[in-house]
Design a binder for these strands. Structure first.
Length: 501
RNA sequence: CGCGGGAUAGAGCAGUUGGUAGCUCGUCGGGCUCAUAACCCGAAGUCGGGGGUUCAAGUCCCCCUCCCGCAACCA
């Protein structure tokens, strides 16, 4: 019986960001998109767990801290506080924030590393690379720029370093089989093809420890080694759920993850290394990894070193959180890069939010007030364009669901705005201002009722993307205290009709 | 000859199994007045170039040009 009342679970994660500097709108996009998915799933009846966090180890952090005469921990603490402030500012409803410096995380990483070593998936060997002494950095042969350091263009020397390696190559066949049997595992398909061809070229074993820096999790059986990024960072998705710890009820409930949402730059790690790690550990694989595109500037890629990053705090202050969220989610096409400009943001926000949606609300509210004293009357029989408007509104939730199931937020929003657009057109067609002059009260009631319902529908559907919208709209529709009219079921139930106000 | 994806109105994109080219923004023209000079309607494209198959090709085949991803230890 309890199974009947139990909600299905949904686990979604963002990447864990690297606190070498503050975050820009690219990171904000990943997180806000995940948040909208999480909110959408909560709205539609799922028991959701939404994880974000920070990946805090590594040489870069160690050096940055040194340069600031701080300990690495002091250094990252401050930046991670900034992360959390940004997510609060952007109304990101995460359920947990994992830091790779958390004790709960350290325990799991060491346990996994130990297990992989004991079962022979990790072995000691020598890592060979090119070292640039002035830059104190290792490079692979491929990274070199014509045999020189890609950063400073000086000569590099070949160095060997004792390292532990993960036997990735042993799992290539299993991986290929898994990918063939789960064609939707990697989204979009273009990324899937890239990963397949990458593995077909042959997988090399992966270097999973370092001795050249200390800021990291110690290899349990050989403490002069530090666990290198892969095993450390990727493990966050299960360590945060309590895997391998005393209380693993969250792990049992939410793993495997439904969606790992990541940027295209880290798709490979999430679709090859991570699944193979899980295979080696004999754990279930996540259901889907989605690699989204990047926000580009006219001047090219957004990067900290170019100093051309766009600060989300500034945008939120200037335009409002909902507007910034809407722009990011509406404007970046699924799987492709988008070009950011403040001009584009202003245009989109003015067009869609102010002119289309806002103006629809404004003109409707005015007419309801002016012609009906603010009390909406029951509708009469539908006629003229009523059916078309109602059909579009009533069928929208299913279309939104369809797009959301593919994580296509931009088209989900476009679907909602189609309804908004149709409603504005409907007002021109029915001209309630003329109906009022002509004393056609029943028809007037019907028209205003239909428009009010469309606003209610679209507001519910848009609420995961713009969490502050309902709070501003429900009072204007006079249903601020009628929660039964604000739920997803109130616009997407099986026998969905435009219900009474 | 590494693998893969693109080239469609000024811009950004849709175009299922081949049969009178669609969307958003911009531009130009018109309408309305409830609303935020808003909203609604209408106009403009020989689908990168060349050849072929077909009654018919943006949609299939061949060649060319140009863009863009991926090509491992940088999160």
């Amino acid at each position: 019986m309890s199974a009947l009342t139990q909600k299905p679970s949904f686990y979604i994660t963002t990447p864990i960001y690297y606190p070498s500097d503050n975050l820009h709108i690219g990171h904000a996009y990943s997180t806000v998109a995940s948040d909208s998915m999480a909110r959408y799933k909560r709205l539609t009846g799922y028991d959701v767990w939404f994880l974000t966090g920070s990946d805090e180890h590594g040489q870069k952090i160690e050096r940055a801290a040194q340069a600031n005469s701080q300990t690495p921990k002091e250094y990252v603490d401050k930046i991670v506080d900034g992360f959390k402030r940004l997510w609060e500012r952007l109304d990101v409803s995460y359920d947990d924030f994992i830091r790779t410096t958390d004790e709960r995380h350290r325990i799991v990483v060491q346990k996994i590393f130990q297990q992989l070593y004991e079962q022979g998936d990790i072995y000691k060997a020598e890592y060979e690379g090119w070292y640039c002494t002035p830059c104190e950095t290792f490079f692979t042969e491929y990274q070199l720029a014509e045999g020189k350091c890609p950063d400073c263009q000086r000569d590099v020397e070949k160095v060997r370093e004792e390292s532990y390696f993960f036997r990735q190559s042993n799992y290539a066949d299993r991986w290929m089989k898994f990918i063939e049997e789960n064609p939707d595992f990697i989204q979009p398909t273009s990324r899937r093809n890239e990963m397949i061809s990458f593995v077909k070229q042959g997988l090399e074993d992966l270097c999973v420890s370092r001795t050249t820096f200390d800021w990291g999790i110690k290899v349990p059986f050989d403490p002069k080694h530090v666990v290198y990024v892969w095993v450390d960072a990727l493990t966050n998705y299960i360590s945060a759920l309590g895997y391998g710890q005393g209380n693993d009820s969250l792990y049992k409930k939410f793993w495997p993850a439904d969606i790992h949402l990541v940027g295209k730059d880290i798709v490979r790690f999430h679709t090859i290394i991570w699944p193979i790690m899980l295979m080696a550990l004999n754990l279930p694989l996540p259901k889907k990894v989605i690699g989204h595109g990047w926000w580009m500037l006219d001047s090219g890629k957004m990067s900290k070193s170019k100093g051309n990053v766009v600060d989300p705090h500034v945008l939120a202050d200037k335009y409002g959180v909902d507007a910034v969220r809407y722009f990011l989610l509406r404007e970046l096409p699924l799987g492709a890069d988008g070009i950011y400009s403040e001009e584009a943001l202003v245009k989109r926000v003015n067009m869609d939010l102010a002119n289309d949606y806002g103006n629809l609300l404004s003109r409707s509210a005015t007419m309801m007030e002016k012609y009906q004293g603010g009390v909406l009357q029951s509708p009469g029989a539908p006629e003229g364009p009523d059916a078309e408007l109602i059909d579009l509104a009533v069928s929208a939730p299913a279309k939104v669901e369809e797009y959301m199931s593919k994580c296509d937020l931009a088209n989900a929003l476009a679907t909602i705005w189609q309804v908004v657009g149709r409603a504005n057109k409907y007002l021109e067609e029915t001209a309630p201002w003329s109906l009022a002059k002509g004393e056609q009260h029943e028809r007037l009631n019907t028209v205003l009722y239909n428009v009010a319902e469309v606003i209610r529908f679209t507001t519910i559907m848009a609420s995961p993307f713009m969490p502050n919208l309902p709070g501003r709209v429900w009072p204007q529709l006079g249903i601020a205290d009628k929660s039964e009219l604000q739920s997803w079921e109130a616009c997407a139930g099986p026998a969905c009709q435009l219900g009474p106000l």
